[in-house]
Write a protein that binds this DNA or RNA. Structure first.
Lengths: 363, 363
DNA sequence: CTGAAAGCGCTTACAG
DNA sequence: CTGAAAGCGCTTACAG
């Protein structure tokens, strides 16, 4: 185990002070280019590594940002994580990853840890609608940006897809283009505003068309049990819809996990999609156009969401006093076979038909 | 922005020294329970938060571990990340997430960052077979554990699935149970030993059965371009197999992404699975039994891999001088319809048939 | 058991 | 521009 080098070692080697070493290695002004080069040369020669904790302690700010997501196993969030890590690396920042599992208790703990780390900013998918520990972050002066979900009050920068518009467009497609008069929904509302907004989209689509009914099934309290949030729970939810004497003729699934659960439930009930029940869902995944049948979805512009959110975070780091900004990006409707549309159902080239919900930005 | 509390504030409030505060809050021996309680009470009353950078600087070791994966968007690695984060949190450790994108240059940079952070350990999916920067980690005394892939030399704890056995079992199933005499493989070898081992499994399965041929297609150099590693690349690879005048009658896909690409290629070529071409792949995903057709796969025991690797890491943190250990966990063959087996092809309850490759542990 | 004090490796007013 | 020195908030030998 080799001894660790410090600025003192470099200073000695270069015949300078630690102050100059610091200025040179941090690319600060106040050193001649000649001195800076001498320092860099010594650092390179000696194999200097840096000590991020010392720097963080002294500067009262770590070269790191936090990423607090509700479920890193969900492809939507792992994609976000990939983009965020990429951008953070460009800024020289490390990424502290936390997974709440939708638990507000976990969220609270993790946000406190972020404060303890003195991260220079946090990107969070809030697990509750009340700001809670998020306000403490703000008090501590840590720039905070929310993704995917809003929180009560307008004090946070927020980036999300048009949950309402995507859901509404999907359900209107079922009603207008396929003549469905009874829609069922499967959702997990406890996770916050996103599902709530999606459900609102369903409701208003139905309300706008007299004669169309809506039957809602929500995971409710069950959602707290992490283990049951996957297949079994989501399949069970959809089955409750299919087992009704007056089962809906089309199902709206609130997210990617629920879509798979619903599809599984329909199979389980030995019914066919879309012949017996049509199915549409929020979120797309790389495999969804290869499912039997290919799934019609409202897809999120993940890359755009991720780049917008990191941009917003770093802008807030630079200008802490900007007003909070809420950005809503359009969802993209991808019509495939599960809604009853022709085309991609069997083999052959998949020709997706896509349209976008309207983009709205509130400054 | 409230001023930050320190041990000095607590000490003053409790009428004690910062030494006692430190001992009490770090659960160290050397304080009476009465003093400890007094400190905790003051900390609670004042709303003390802690400063992890100061602690890390002084202790020369951060309460954090590093997780360096090749592709956090791959469901396999995001699952690993979920488990690792969960365990780390139990130990009071933060998780520093890095994504290499299979780039050894990135890997080198990120491992250097881990050294700069003084993490107490690192879990890494190595992007190359040469130890490289991993050896520097070792020299720096940072416990390091590898997942999914091995590195030349035996100096690292390693946990992975039985790549060889899983692939071999899959291909033998194609040969013995479905009578295929010409197998094609699509792989991306540059990522290291895992794909190489899987390919070896295919080769030996074929070699063990005279009269059976193998045609290999590998991404090779192309794999460096991150953007093309997804759908387009993987679909293109499989198409090269299908476009041959003597196309194979069955395809082995080297991982989950390649499986989807292969399936897409077969669709593109307007062929049917398994009628025209059978398909088996390494890795399972929650959607794979809902694909058209349901995919026959060698599934990795992800939870077990993740818990084993974190266990190994924390054991090494506790006992730095243990000998390196290599653990190979069995893959689970899940027979579904894409190989030609009956059952789960159309609607109805999916009855997976599963078997395990043998478990082998080298102490 | 308890506390005074040194020190981890940086950064940054301050003086020259 | 350059350097001496203080100090960020902890932990830990050391003395009592």
């Amino acid at each position: 185990v080799a001894k660790r080098l410090t600025y003192a070692d470099i200073a000695r080697h270069a015949g300078l002070s630690t102050a100059s070493v610091s200025r040179a290695l941090s690319n600060q002004p106040g050193v001649t280019e000649e001195v800076a080069e001498r320092v860099r040369a010594s650092a390179r020669t000696l194999g200097y590594r840096g000590n991020r904790a010392a720097r963080a302690l002294r500067r009262q700010r770590a070269d790191a940002i936090g990423l607090v997501v509700s479920d890193i196993e969900n492809p939507f969030f792992s994609s976000i994580a990939r983009f965020v890590e990429e951008q953070a690396a460009k800024h020289g920042d490390a990424v502290l990853l936390c997974n709440t599992g939708e638990s507000r208790e976990q969220e609270r703990r993790q946000l406190h840890m972020m404060m303890g780390e003195n991260v220079s900013g946090v990107i969070v998918v809030p697990s509750l609608e009340e700001p809670g520990a998020l306000l403490e972050l703000q008090e501590a002066g840590i720039p905070t940006v929310l993704v995917d979900r809003r929180v009560n009050g307008d004090e946070f920068d927020t980036v999300m897809v048009d949950h309402y518009g995507g859901a509404r467009a999907l359900v209107e497609h079922l009603i207008l283009d396929h003549g469905h008069a009874h829609i069922g929904t499967v959702t997990v509302i406890t996770s916050g505003t996103s599902s709530r907004e999606r459900l609102r989209g369903c409701r208003e689509a139905v309300a706008a068309h007299p004669g169309v009914r809506l039957t809602e099934i929500d995971a409710g309290e069950l959602a707290d049990d992490r283990r049951r949030r996957t297949t079994e729970l989501t399949e069970g939810l959809a089955l409750r819809l299919l087992d009704r004497p007056d089962a809906p003729t089309a199902i709206f699934a609130g997210n990617n996990v629920l879509s798979l659960g619903a599809l599984r439930a329909v199979r389980h009930a030995r019914l066919g999609v879309p012949e017996d029940v049509a199915l549409v869902g929020f979120d797309d995944e790389p495999s969804f156009d290869l499912l039997a049948p290919p799934l019609t979805v409202a897809a999120q512009p993940i890359a755009q969401i991720a780049s917008t959110v990191t941009e917003l975070l770093y802008r807030r780091v630079a200008e802490p006093d900007r007003g909070a900004q809420s950005i809503v990006l359009p969802a993209e409707i991808r019509l495939r076979a599960s809604c009853g549309c022709p085309g991609a159902h069997s083999a052959g080239r998949t020709a997706d038909h896509t349209t976008s919900t309207e983009e709205r930005t509130q400054p």
